[in-house]
Write a protein that binds this DNA or RNA. Structure first.
Length: 629
RNA sequence: GUCCUCGUAGCUCAGUCGGAUAGAGCGACGGAUUCCUAAUCCGUAGGCCGCAGGUUCGAAUCCUGCCGAGGACGCCA
């Protein structure tokens, strides 16, 4: 709809050469915006004000020229010049009627744009280390990434969703050793558990499940003989010594079997957790594979070829300071081991080489420092700095009964994403995680997320959807039916204020999708859906839909059908279900509000559905790094 | 110390590219149900947009400094 207005302005400009020239580097579409106040019409353009300076003319005078040059359009009823030089467009009712028709014709496709050829986007998110279950912080990255993926796809970009599995390096060794020790423990071998090891109960579960055939049991004495002390001061040495001891006793191959099984077990668990959460990936990219296919060497070779690497103190350095970093970084240590940074450069290099034009990384806020150097790596290899976009997700804090819920394996009962999902349900979790800008720390209030009252925007929106479905069920019960064609032909009967605001809100949906996608900002969609639901509820309370006058009834049903489509589409992007029924109605009548809440909770719990959702997100938990650990 | 993010109503937060009178929800207070779901709606109160400068027709928005909160700064991963 906005495009129509922008086109009118554009066309007018072509008849005004001197203004068109001044507006050459201006996006006309960007000068057109929705008005805040209905008395200003439906759309306003500030183009005259923006052209005032370059043309040295009075903005109102420019506006007058443009308005006079505007062609006639059935879309526009009235054009006015207001304030310092705004051009206000009052659209005709038929413009909104046409939009309603589009909604019902296009259904699930409404608001979406035709697929574009590019740029091809690689969206990496979550990428939590496979050393334990996803925690609450990861949920935010997962929801955010999944929603942004849906948004980008909705506006036409080809999106590839990717999870980078950090399945190489020291942390995997520690994981392997942790499982090995728990396995020994389970068979009665008492060994001190390292302070630097993974202590969660899930390690014991893995230890009891893995196939250890061919791995011989050993005595505690053999394990601990000659090891350093297990104290806070040298926990690293102690863990490393245990890893080495395990390799000694069972061979590289034996250790690798334990490590690999542990990794796969955790990775599968993470994948299942995310699937249940409606978060899907096109690719689980293994860091190990990077080494196996020599991609790290390839990347280093490219840098070498370009002559950017240098040697110092036996190590190979990358001069990231040349690209704005505060210090140069080592890529190959003096002991010949490549650093994690080298893998990261290689990974991003590989993404570009795989044909993705634009890379988006969704990372926890604790990874700020790391971006400059990875971007520097890409630049040094001849890519544009802008090819890599990083979205940082701030941390999540849980609240219950107004008090902060302590998280962390040691102190907390509440730690994992799975627990959170089980407590508040997938819909509420998905919704709450993206409700706020990712730049903001998220205070996740468990009481509100669980509540079935109007305090909770998820239910508020879902209820609007269910209510519409309910109206149509009522219609059948009254042995009436909806004549869609008649409704479309009689849309002119929709003249109430609430009907007009609802139509206006509906017509904004495509613009909201574009805004949300371009800014990687799902919260715009969330707020929009809340407002849309509010418009609907207001309408519902003010006017009956199932009226005797068939023409009016059909027209009203047409309008609420369109509303149902847009709510369902929007919730689908968020990965939240759009229920047809809420089971609370009968009980609401019989027992009042309290009973309704109980019933609805059951209803909510039973739902895991996330319609039309694709992938999920990144991380954000203080205390602990979630990636690059 | 250097860098990054943030600071808007009692609370939690929106605010697009610099636009017209600063926006929601919750909480508080007051109303609405013979009628398609009261999981709803309507109304009232509530603001030094952290502070101080600057840029201009116009600043919550852009720039500089300061104050405050959080985070990042390893031949770790």
């Amino acid at each position: 709809m906005k495009r129509i207005v922008a086109k009118l302005v554009q066309d007018a400009l072509t008849t005004l050469p001197e203004l068109a020239e001044a507006a050459a580097d201006l996006s006309i579409q960007n000068t057109v915006e929705r008005t805040r106040d209905a008395s200003h019409g439906d759309f306003a353009s500030n183009i005259a004000m923006r052209l005032a300076k370059p043309t040295r003319r009075n903005p109102r005078e420019i506006a007058t020229s443009i308005v006079e040059a505007l062609g006639d359009s059935p879309t526009v009823d009235k054009v006015e010049i207001a304030g310092p030089g705004f051009i206000n467009f009052h659209l005709s009712p038929t413009a909104f009627h046409a939009e309603l028709e589009s909604i019902l014709e296009q259904g699930e496709q409404y608001g979406r744009q035709a697929p574009k050829d590019g740029p091809k986007i690689n969206l990496e998110f979550v990428s939590a280390n496979p050393t334990g279950p996803l925690h609450v912080g990861h949920g935010r990255g997962a929801s955010y990434g999944a929603t942004v993926g849906n948004l980008l796809e909705a506006v036409g970009y080809p999106v590839h969703r990717e999870y980078y599995v950090n399945d190489a390096g020291r942390q995997m060794d520690i994981l392997g050793a942790s499982v090995w020790l728990r396995w020994l423990e389970a068979s009665g071998v008492e060994v001190p558990f390292p302070k630097g090891g993974y202590r969660g109960d899930y390690i014991r579960d893995i230890a009891s499940e893995i196939d250890t055939s061919g791995i011989e049991a050993v005595t505690a004495e053999v394990v601990t003989n000659g090891l350093p002390d297990n104290t806070d001061d040298n926990k690293d040495e102690f863990v490393d010594a245990l890893v080495a001891r395990c390799k000694e006793l069972h061979g590289e191959e034996g250790f690798d079997r334990i490590r690999q099984q542990a990794l796969e077990s955790i990775r599968d668990e993470i994948r299942e957790d995310l699937e249940e959460f409606g978060v899907h990936f096109d690719e689980w990219f293994s860091e190990q594979s990077l080494t196996k296919t020599n991609r790290v060497d390839d990347a280093l070779a490219v840098l070498e070829e370009r002559g950017v690497l240098y040697e110092k103190g036996g190590a190979t350095w990358f001069p990231s300071t040349q690209f704005g970093d505060d210090k140069d970084r080592v890529v190959v240590r003096d002991n010949g081991v490549k650093t994690y940074f080298a893998s990261d450069i290689a990974y991003h290099f590989d993404k570009r080489e795989r044909g993705f034009d634009h890379l988006i990384d969704v990372l926890g806020a604790d990874h700020h420092g790391y971006v400059t150097r990875v971007r520097a790596g890409l630049e040094a290899m001849g890519y544009e700095a802008g090819d890599l976009e990083v979205q940082f997700v701030q941390f999540v804090t849980l609240y219950r009964s107004g008090k902060r819920v302590q998280m962390g394996t040691r102190s907390g009962q509440f730690d994992t994403l799975r627990q959170l999902r089980e407590e508040v349900g997938n819909d509420a979790a998905r919704f709450y995680y993206v409700m706020r800008s990712i730049d903001q720390h998220l205070d996740f209030d468990l009481d509100v997320a669980k509540s079935q009252s109007s305090d909770n925007p998820v239910y508020y929106i879902q209820y609007a959807h269910a209510r519409i479905a309910s109206v149509f069920r009522q219609l059948s019960e009254k042995s009436l039916s909806w004549d869609e064609d008649n409704g479309r032909d009689r849309l002119a009967l929709l003249v109430e204020d609430q009907e007009k605001s609802l139509m206006t809100s509906l017509s904004r949906y495509p613009e909201i999708l574009e805004l949300s996608a371009n800014n990687r900002a799902p919260q715009h969609l969330v707020h929009y859906l809340r407002d849309l639901a509010n418009d609907f509820h207001t309408y519902y309370n003010a006017h009956a839909f199932i009226v005797d006058d068939a023409a009016l009834r059909d027209a009203r049903l047409y309008l609420i059908s369109a509303t149902r489509v847009v709510i369902a589409n929007g919730l689908g992007i968020l990965g939240v279900s759009a229920p047809e029924v809420s089971t609370g109605s009968l009980d609401a009548v019989r027992f009042g509000n309290r009973a309704v809440r109980g019933v609805c909770r059951l209803y909510q719990r039973s739902r895991t559905g996330c319609r039309g959702v694709r992938p999920g997100a990144a991380t954000s938990q203080p205390a602990e790094r979630t990636r690059r650990q």
